[in-house]
Simulated scan of single mutants.
Amino acid sequence: MAGGLATAAIAAPVAAQTVPFHGAHQAGITTPMQDQLYFASFDLVATKREDVVALLKSWTDASARLTAGQPVQAGDSGEADGLPPSGLTLTFGFGPELFVQNGQDRYGLAAKRPAALVDLPRYPGDQLVPGISGGALCVQACANDAQVAFHAVRQLARLGYGAVQLKWVQSGFATARQSPGTPRNLMGFKDGTMNPAGAAMDKAVWVTQPGWMQGGSYMVARRIRIALEHWDRMQVAFQEKTFGREKASGAPLGGRHEFDTPDFNATDANGDYVIPETAHARLAAAANNDGAQILRRSYSYNDGANFTAERWPPWHQGIEYDAGLFFQAYQQDPRTGFMPIFDKLSKMDALNQFTTHVSSAVFACPPGVRPGGYIGRELFEAA
């Protein structure tokens, strides 16, 4: 009983935590990761620009209430009644389809599409599933309670009826709060060790160039299915060489602690690199990518299992997990952040034998909302 009371005493302040919705930057980007994610991409069905603005104003008002732990005033579905805010953050992004769709400038915004909002190329090994990539708008809801996160997106989708419709969604979970240190992914390794921190993070994440995106950031989202059955048959030593890090500590191979600087020149008695040339940690390191850095804010996902009935080979028959990583990266510019890093990873990373990218999207996340403003005001009211 004493242990249970102590746990409740610790958990209560976390559940009651409120992250301010208003600010210079959107919350949910450099905010410490919460336990749960519910991500939604939307198509726009509104035909007029003023209808899009009305939608964003409605979403702004609702988001300020939801992140404060309050219900949306009219027609709230009620499943979060009595639940604390649980650190809820709502982060919004604008996709390429907001600016031009099927060659049409629907809302007079084509000239304001930033160059950094690129169309990502198709990378080697991509097996993108139709219908679960891209989008005109996105909402990332993160909270320490899955029901709180889902409720928030559900309310925004309801308020947007007639202006938007859901295109695809993804839920996720992380060990960010339950265990100290860097969260682990479903492969058992720490995920995000090389994230920039402090001033380096600000430099890597926030747009500083004048314009409507100043103070915002660019999100790249990739749903990565992991062949966990295959991975689980590998020896730990092989897994560590694949990542270039120790599984238990997260230390780079040849190091002792997680945040030790990797020695990419170190060799073993046979003259081989201690951190192999195809190791994920080597290929993704800023030191090997002309200083390119991104802020990883990824969540694991588990969408059940699929039955495969291929007659040959026999190990393709049976149940396979539909699980993996919902990779999210924030950066000042994908052209100097995600793209050069992943171009190398997609061609050489030893992890590729276990992973398949099935969804891809890029969004421009505008700066934060000032009191009295609304999401994307700088874009829609720019001269």
Rank of each mutant, 00 (worst) to 15 (best):
P210W: 05
G216S: 12
R370Y: 00
D35K: 10
F259P: 00
P371V: 03
E246L: 12
G373K: 03
G4F: 04
A80Y: 06
F307M: 12
T278M: 05
A382H: 06
L159V: 02
A176M: 05
Y123S: 07
T30M: 14
T208F: 02
G131F: 12
E310M: 12
T18C: 10
P340A: 08
A2T: 12
Q70F: 03
D81L: 13
R225Y: 01
E320Y: 06
T7G: 01
H151D: 07
M201V: 02
A68M: 12
K190D: 01
Q140G: 01
A284F: 11
V139C: 14
S346Q: 13
L55G: 00
S298R: 08
V19G: 07
L83Y: 10
D232T: 04
Q331W: 05
G291F: 10
G160R: 05
G372L: 06
P20L: 05
Y330I: 03
P210D: 15
L351C: 03
M187C: 09
R256M: 10
I319H: 09
L83H: 05
A221Y: 09
S217G: 11
G318D: 09
S63W: 03
F259C: 03
N185C: 08
A269C: 00
S346C: 05
V220R: 08
F363V: 09
V14F: 10
I341Q: 02
R49S: 10
G135H: 00
G23Y: 08
I10S: 11
A221I: 01
G318L: 07
L137M: 08
T336D: 01
K190M: 14
A80I: 04
D145K: 03
P20T: 01
V207T: 14
L55H: 02
I375M: 10
R223S: 12
R311D: 11
P334D: 09
V118A: 14
L90G: 07
R335C: 01
V164F: 06
F338D: 02
Y321K: 13
Y273A: 14
G93C: 08
G172V: 08
A197D: 09
Q331T: 02
A9Q: 11
T261Y: 00
D105E: 10
V129E: 15
A146P: 13
P262E: 09
P183M: 08
F42L: 15
G271E: 11
L295G: 03
L109G: 06
I226W: 00
